[in-house]
Simulated scan of single mutants.
Amino acid sequence: MEQQLLDVAWLDAREAVTLAELAQICALSMDELDELMDYGALAPLEEVRQERLFSAECVMPLRTAGKLRRDFDLDLFTVGLLLGYLNRIEALERQVRSLQAHLPGNKSAERR
């Protein structure tokens, strides 16, 4: 049996990635990412030496949206809408976890 090698890197959400890195990580072309920026679904943090930098926080939703695009043959405009919803879902999940941590009788809050 042939062993598969995985290319794994720990990505801190506070870090920044270039457009080329984002394209490689998310399996989308740079043209597709440019189109998502045109739709307003993806925004660079800043431009350093004519290279756009993006928050690493956008990697997971973008990978998910790209996978759904391939699975369901979605156009990029739909991917842009989907990306907005995935980001909103993530923000709401963080808010729910934060609120749950403050509830009386919460086992995870009592362990602290």
Score class of each variant (00 low, 15 high):
F54D: 06
P61N: 02
L83M: 05
Q24N: 14
D38E: 13
L22V: 01
L6H: 09
L82S: 01
R63S: 10
E90G: 00
R49M: 03
N106G: 15
L5E: 15
D75C: 10
L22M: 03
D38S: 05
V79D: 01
R63K: 15
G40N: 12
L33D: 10
A9S: 13
L82I: 04
V59Q: 07
L36F: 05
F77M: 06
P61K: 09
Q100K: 08
Y39Q: 03
S29F: 06
A23H: 03
V79A: 01
Q24V: 10
E35C: 11
L11N: 10
A13D: 15
E47G: 07
E47H: 08
S55L: 11
T18C: 12
L76E: 03
R70V: 11
L76T: 07
D12V: 14
K67Q: 15
P44N: 12
K67M: 11
A20T: 12
A101I: 12
L92A: 10
E15M: 09
P44A: 14
L83K: 03
Q24S: 15
S29C: 05
E47D: 14
E46N: 06
L19Q: 01
E110S: 14
D7M: 14
V79R: 00
A91V: 05
L53F: 08
R69V: 11
E90P: 00
D73W: 01
P44T: 11
Q3G: 05
R63M: 15
R69I: 06
L103H: 10
G40L: 12
A9G: 13
V79K: 11
G84W: 01
L99I: 12
P44Y: 14
D12W: 07
R69P: 01
G80H: 02
L86M: 08
E46K: 13
V48K: 06
L92K: 11
Q3I: 10
S98D: 08
E21G: 14
L5N: 10
G80K: 00
R111N: 10
T78K: 00
R112C: 14
L68T: 02
G40F: 09
E47R: 12
E57H: 08
R14K: 11
L22G: 09
A109M: 02
I89G: 08
E93F: 03
Q100F: 03
S29Q: 14
R70F: 07
F77E: 13
M37S: 14
A101P: 01
E21S: 15
V48P: 05
E51W: 03
K107D: 13
A20F: 00
D73K: 08
Y39E: 05
E21I: 02
E90W: 00
Y39H: 04
Q50M: 10
V8D: 06
L68W: 00
F77L: 06
L5H: 06
S108E: 08
Q50Y: 04
V59C: 11
R94K: 12
F72P: 13
A41M: 02
D7L: 13
D31S: 11
E51A: 03
A101W: 13
D71Y: 10
I89W: 07
L45T: 09
M37Q: 12
V17N: 06
L28G: 07
L5G: 02
M30I: 11
A13L: 10
E47N: 12
D75W: 00
G80Y: 02
F54K: 02
T78A: 12
A91R: 08
T64C: 13
L53K: 14
G66M: 07
